[in-house]
Design a protein around this nucleic acid. Structure first.
Lengths: 193, 193
DNA sequence: ACAGAATTAGGACATTCGTCCTAATTCTCA
DNA sequence: TGAGAATTAGGACGAATGTCCTAATTCTGT
């Protein structure tokens, strides 16, 4: 069993570079140099740059799903699961202050490029939306769980954008505290068996 | 008196293209074609692409300041002024769903490019922050007006990102209603003479 | 060991990029 | 009107882009 195939290495490095420099600003040569292979070797694995983008989005989709499944399996209640989501802002604060949210910034860039993969990128955001909706529903008889989920997702996206612009870690912690307070204010009407 | 100088035309078209396609994805040729002049003519007005970016940021800074000054001069109270800010999300909803917030997306892109103009772009957000802080202060004896200002700015940025990703106008209106409700919940302790 | 497949390196390709030069044209104003 | 400045068009320049080809190398299974 190979530790990691060349293809996986390419996708991994492209993922990081697309995040840190943006899709448009990252060239074939950049990814090749990061992986340590020749440019020509690329064509054997990916025919076009868009193919790499598709693979990167697929990788992010898988990893997001795995992360959400992991939180789901941890056995805590929905409130603790939502906190896991929120605390990503703290855990990834350094990267967020440098490059923003990987998903949000990719969606924004692809929207401007009018890129065909925009919908697939948005689907990652949709995973979070659906998962959060499920948690909100599990929290009890809230009438519009998806509205709450979208609000929380939107909140975190705003924090990411602002943190990137102002490079302000205190702001992140402040907003996270605000989110926690908001979450605590939601009535828990769930019934434990 | 010329209706509009060529230089101003260039900056105006570059502004729109940077917004709609992003800075990196917009080329000299794109702007020249939009203005209707030759590529060579560019160098007479702007030596480098970064010079155009600086001019675009300066233009946006001026226009933002003018807009904020305009709201300030309308004679309404701070609550109505803040509503003017919030309602930008509704007024510009079509463009926001297509291209996001002009300021937020530019800051995010320049952060990824590690561009020297990043700080100047962030200053535009700073104008909003400072203006909103002033309105929050005018609203009364709130202990941390800047915290509230940053929160509101962050809120609107999140709405813009989500609206771009999901192309959901109902979400925008929902969140705007939420912001209005939040604003109404802030105690007005200002003293009218 | 060896044939065939998979992978790799290196470079060619047309195009586009930002930049810059030069010559022609237009404008300005004494 | 005419000289000098400002503006414009057109294209050259090297570098970089995404794409693609070919030949060498490595791997795989028998």
């Amino acid at each position: 069993m190979p530790a990691q195939s060349t293809r996986d290495l390419i996708v991994e490095q492209a993922d990081a570079l697309f995040y840190e420099s943006g899709f448009e600003a990252t060239s074939f040569a950049d990814v090749a140099a990061a992986v340590g292979i020749s440019r020509g070797n690329f064509y054997h694995h990916f025919k076009t740059k868009d193919d790499i983008l598709d693979a990167v989005i697929a990788r992010r989709t898988e990893r997001t799903r795995a992360m959400l499944d992991g939180w789901q399996a941890e056995g805590d209640g929905p409130r603790e699961r939502i906190l896991s989501f929120i605390h990503m802002l703290i855990a990834n604060r350094t990267q967020i202050m440098d490059f923003g949210c990987p998903v949000g910034t990719l969606c924004s860039e692809l929207a401007k490029l009018d890129h065909a993969a925009q919908g697939r990128a948005t689907e990652i955001l949709g995973l979070f939306r659906d998962w959060l909706t499920e948690q909100m529903r599990a929290l009890g008889a809230v009438d519009r769980p998806e509205t709450l989920a979208l609000h929380l997702l939107s909140w975190s996206q705003g924090v990411a954008v602002m943190a990137t612009a102002f490079k302000d870690e205190a702001f992140i912690r402040n907003e996270v505290a605000g989110i926690e307070h908001w979450l605590a204010s939601l009535p828990d009407l769930s019934q434990s068996t």
